[in-house]
Amino acid sequence: MKIDIKGIWGALSSLKYLFQPPGTLRYPDVKKEAADGYRGFHDNDLSKCIGCGMCEDICMNLAIDMVKPKSEAYLNAKNGSGLIPRLDYGRCCWCSLCTDVCPVNSLKLTKNYVYVSEDMNRFIYTPGEEKLGKREKETVK
């Protein structure tokens, strides 16, 4: 009968971690900045947006609709159509085509990627007009 000494000793060596600090990121207390270029939720610089609708055209998931903003104040002078993009996070797959195609670089992806809601109907949002926070209760009134 062969006794696998290395197998026994090697397994026991895992016990050294018992005396080492854990590698856990204690999330709610400690947050980690996302890497550069991370694709989080959209942000729209309404002072630049020209309402061209190219983002709507290019989106293959039909996640973007061009809608009238809540107030005219959101529109800048160059916005010819009077419409701004509205995102549906029930469709969006963060492919970033919309931001790539945006001629004025007004539509961008932020590093914010945490959004939770108890209601499935609250995933439609107009970037620039409102901001997506982490919890639905705190952001969408």
Binding site: S14, L15, Y17, L18, Q20, P22, G23, T24, R26
Partner: peptide
Amino acid sequence: IGNARIHRRVG
């Protein structure tokens, strides 16, 4: 907890 520590977790 001990198991978690060996997994390098908080537990």
